[in-house]
Design a protein around this nucleic acid. Structure first.
Lengths: 157, 157
DNA sequence: AATGAAATTGACAATCAATATCACTTTCAA
DNA sequence: TTGAAAGTGATATTGATTGTCAATTTCATT
């Protein structure tokens, strides 16, 4: 969206940074996604438009997008980070299909409230949290291909 | 505990693996811990007893302990994995002090129940989940050393 | 439009945790 | 005791990400 592109440029200006062709392109490609995407995958997309852009610049631009409050970095079970739009300003958690990798966002105030209560009992003040549910989505429950899928289990139950 | 050591040996036998001096030592050192420990840190401990043991063997033995159901691997905000005893058979989640790194385990059935509800609404079947609360513990709230501490934020709120 | 200081880029090296390789050593059933 | 199979440890390798640095680009100012 033009809106986000504009916000990004504003952030650059305010931070005394420069609006370059690469940043413009990478940001545009990122905003064009509607799912969680890895730096590598984003790189492949922009690479299609301009072969000269390097993966390193994609990493750097994603970092800038985070600083601008336009992207969130998520570490799910896998090795690499995934980036999502920070557009929906509300906090949300994630439900991830351990078979096909589908990611669904959700929010639940009751859970958040209970978290606060737990923290209070433990003498903590919550700064942020991470809630990820892993399981099978409707589609993947249908086909009984028992494999473990793309996302590895991480020792919870 | 002798009990766990025995269970580990049983797992080895049942899997057609061999009970070696190194495995014995590493497992003993692991069971002697009472907190979450990294492979590297465990290596340093056994290294104190027997300089000849390699880090690689520690990694391999921790993997065996996981397979034996005696250890859980956790990926918190940091880069490296931490391992904990799987003794308390019940599932639990973690509250982590973002300043001093202290880790407290807790369990909350209400949250679990709500998670199930959320998943059902989304058409998912939960296989496992990950809930981590990050914040300041009592002690670290006291001293106002505003730093971000050892554990990095991961873009949640 | 030209200038030039400061920022940016991209190729490559480096890091860091974890895993693979492989020659040598140890275990353990027979 | 023995020998096949498993295990070990030094080292190399991986894969994601970050650091380095010479060459290039931006952009406020001329």
């Amino acid at each position: 969206m033009q809106n986000k592109q504009h916000k990004f440029r504003q952030h650059l200006v305010r931070s005394g940074l420069k609006a370059t062709r690469q940043r413009e392109l990478i940001a545009r490609a990122f905003f064009a996604t509607n799912t969680h995407i890895s730096a590598e995958a984003l790189y492949r997309r922009v690479s299609g438009r301009d072969r000269r852009i390097g993966l390193v610049t994609v990493y750097r631009t994603l970092k800038l997008l985070k600083e601008a409050g336009l992207a969130h970095e998520r570490q799910f079970g896998e090795g690499r980070a995934l980036f999502e739009h920070a557009s929906s300003d509300r906090h949300h958690d994630h439900m991830i299909c351990s078979h096909c990798g589908k990611i669904v966002e959700f929010e639940n105030c009751e859970i958040e409230a209970l978290q606060e209560e737990v923290a209070r009992r433990l003498g903590f003040t919550i700064q942020y949290h991470k809630l990820e549910l892993y399981g099978r989505c409707k589609d993947c429950r249908a086909d009984a291909s028992g494999g473990t899928g793309r996302i590895r289990a991480v020792g919870a139950r």
